[in-house]
């Protein structure tokens, strides 16, 4: 086994590593928060990291046309293959070290995948990676659509949102009628071998994502982080407000921030009460411009139910022996 290293906790924005391992010159949108996830995870993990990425914005924008902003080695893998790529890479490193072909040392294996590639298509590969004892981290960067193919709904798109698959119409106002999956909770409940699981938002609370990545990398086994990434293009807001939208997602409670560290679940951010109404988060995005008051109320009621009726609020939907998703 590779030597286990414990990463130091970053205690304030002035202590964030200055060096960039995902540098300037990428083909992302103005204000892209998923780019921020790339920047922050690589800052936290440092130079001895191999990154793997599935097809999607964070592949196409970062390696197309023979140029790249990556400083650390990075490899593209198929849309649903984030879990397999992480598993194969980590197993390969272990084998090479065992055979003495490369020196024994800690090399971080981090695979990232989008919400379509990870939470929909790639769920089975992630599941099998999390059943092993390999040292690997899978980051699900969730911009709530298949963004790279021009914004199609996925299983992670917020209820009611417009996408190119779910445009509003004269007969039906709401086309995205699926409720967002709780992927981190689902993976935690079903994978006893997983060492660390968390949800995060790259810009809120500041440094939270960096420290969660460090915890995940020092957990001594498979780990998984789900980030919610405001996407100025698909969500339709001015790019300068990515930080604000991330903050509102946390404060309104629509995206609970938690970690499950070796089986112990904990909210890492408890939205101050009264929670910000979800409408304040939703109405700032053009993709919800068609919603009516009754729609906002419906979403609010489901978010409230998640915080008030669940046994572990925001994490596990169990109450009095019933698995529930709705009041």
């Amino acid at each position: 086994m590779a030597e286990e290293i414990v990463f130091e906790k970053i205690k304030g924005i002035h202590k964030v590593p200055r060096e960039e391992f995902y540098s300037s010159g990428h083909r992302t949108c103005e204000g892209c928060e998923s780019a921020m996830v790339m920047r922050m995870f690589s800052k936290a993990s440092g130079p001895r990291t191999i990154a793997l990425g599935t097809t999607g914005c964070m592949y196409v924008a970062n390696t197309a046309y023979m140029t790249t902003p990556w400083v650390i080695p990075w490899m593209h893998t198929q849309l649903g293959a984030g879990g397999s790529a992480a598993l194969g890479t980590s197993a390969g490193l272990r084998a090479l070290m065992k055979k003495g072909k490369i020196p024994e040392e800690k090399i971080n294996t981090i695979a990232f995948c989008g919400d379509l590639g990870g939470a929909d298509m790639g769920l089975s590969a992630i599941s099998s990676a999390l059943q092993t004892d390999y040292d690997l981290l899978i980051i699900l960067y969730d911009n709530e659509s298949a963004a790279n193919t021009d914004i199609q709904a996925t299983g992670m798109t917020t209820w009611g949102a417009q996408t190119t698959f779910t445009p509003t119409g004269k007969v039906k106002r709401i086309m995205q009628t699926r409720w967002k999956k709780n992927v981190a909770g689902m993976l935690a409940a079903g994978h006893p071998n997983v060492k660390y699981i968390a949800t995060a938002i790259a810009s809120f609370p500041p440094i939270d994502l960096l420290n969660k990545v460090r915890k995940a990398l020092s957990a001594g086994g498979p780990a998984f982080i789900h980030t919610l990434d405001p996407c100025p293009k698909g969500w339709d807001y001015h790019p300068r407000y990515s930080d604000k939208l991330g903050e509102l997602a946390a404060r309104s409670g629509i995206f609970p921030l938690y970690e499950i560290d070796h089986g112990t679940a904990k909210l890492t951010y408890n939205p101050p009460k009264p929670r910000v109404p979800v409408k304040e988060y939703l109405e700032k995005q053009g993709r919800f411009a068609h919603l009516k008051d009754e729609d906002f109320q419906y979403i609010q009621q489901r978010v409230d139910s998640m915080w008030e009726d669940w046994e572990i609020p925001g994490i596990i939907p169990v109450r009095n022996g019933t698995i529930r998703s709705e009041k």
Binding site: G25, H26, T68, V71
Partner: peptide, 18 residues
């Protein structure tokens, strides 16, 4: 594709015309 050297930036795509 050649990676960026430590401390550098992607010299082949300066994107300021955005």
């Amino acid at each position: 594709v050649k990676s960026v050297a430590r401390g550098g930036r992607n010299e082949d795509y300066k994107r300021f015309t955005t």
